[in-house]
Design a protein around this nucleic acid. Structure first.
Lengths: 200, 200
DNA sequence: TCGAAAGCTGAACCGCCGTTCAAACTACTG
DNA sequence: CAGTAGTTTGAACGGCGGTTCAGCTTTCGA
């Protein structure tokens, strides 16, 4: 089912989706980048739609593994949370590519309910990852006992998405530093710590 | 420049963008819905790209006028804010169409920097509208003096976007009611009022 | 060693759709 | 009425690109 070649094709499709957007992806280009012919692409993926859907899913499973698969490392929970905020925002040269794919998935999933479980699964990992970070802080006493971990995690995810999209769009009213300050400020307030400690 | 017919064509294009997504919009369909021929469409809009861009902009200027153009009405600031939260979320049968267009603009603007000012302008109106609502509350003493109005307004916008997108995607971890509760809870905390008052 | 199945290719097909073009119809102006 | 500018149309063009097809090469088990 999943041969070496099929993977190469899928990988090429992922790259092109990230670069040009789903609708700009042409089978000939995918084939070219994968070092194959268009016929070969059709040999593994009977239709363009099928190829693109599998590529999207594959792309996000992989991205999710990279971002949220790692164990919450050692070190203070505050530092980990600060790093999480920084690494989640679309800093130029940083997570911009992931953000573009993220928005692509949003739109696609809005139109195509089949894709919604993929998005939901990613959000679930995202939220759980952030909840883990916060939970560690509560356990270690850095954050107040009785903190509603899930609520704060959902809050963090929502804030990162809501500010990050504006930063990604170069909104002068919300650049990436302002986004970071706002997220850090609100989360620090919820967790009873000094906001500066989340901006390290 | 902007004749009766051109407006009809633009209107038809807007509808189709909302229904099927920009990339699915076909000139023949636009013409059909506008009661015109494809040639006539090209008479007013020399290229497809030009038509779609103008349609998008037109669509959002209009939507912005409807949503944020009205003066902040009379009544308590708390009630106005509660209504703002409710009306901004993608309740089924409510603002869903606007949300879809919103996401469409996000993706388009990410790919096409020319569109970013359009998005920035909309965000500006959105944020200012929310700031006005909060400002009224501060003036009337319903919210604490010294409230950082712009900060809370940005927070509100980010929370609505960040939770709303998940609700729109039918994420089981964040339905529209949970989104509303989270937004209301956080804003109530920032404004020193009872969260229940924002859920009326 | 033979033959079938899988991997792979180039070339051609063909439908969709943006775009163009020449011409008709209308309306207004001198 | 003549002329001109603005509308509107049907029909056709042209190419991009997904898909198909017939056949070549490689692999591998009997």
């Amino acid at each position: 089912m999943s041969s070496e070649t099929a993977d190469r094709i899928l990988e090429a499709a992922c790259e092109l989706i990230a670069e040009d957007g789903i609708d700009e992806v042409r089978i000939a280009r995918v084939a070219q980048r994968a070092g194959a012919s268009t016929s070969l692409v059709h040999h593994y993926f009977s239709t363009r739609e099928e190829l693109l859907e599998q590529a999207l899913v594959h792309s996000f499973e992989q991205a999710g593994d990279e971002r949220f698969g790692a164990e919450v490392g050692s070190g203070g929970a505050v530092e980990i949370l600060a790093a999480a905020i920084r690494d989640s925002l679309p800093y130029p040269g940083g997570q911009e590519r992931e953000w573009v794919l993220w928005v692509e998935l949003w739109l696609r999933a809005v139109r195509e309910p089949d894709l919604r479980p993929v998005a939901a699964r990613l959000y679930d990992r995202y939220r759980r990852w952030m909840a883990d970070v916060i939970f560690v802080g509560v356990e270690s006493g850095e954050f107040p006992a009785g903190t509603d971990v899930d609520r704060v995690a959902n809050l963090g995810v929502a804030l990162l998405d809501g500010t990050g999209i504006r930063a990604l769009l170069d909104d002068p009213g919300m650049d990436v530093e302002a986004a970071r300050a706002l997220v850090a400020g609100v989360l620090a307030g919820e967790l009873g710590i000094d906001p500066k400690r989340l901006l390290a």
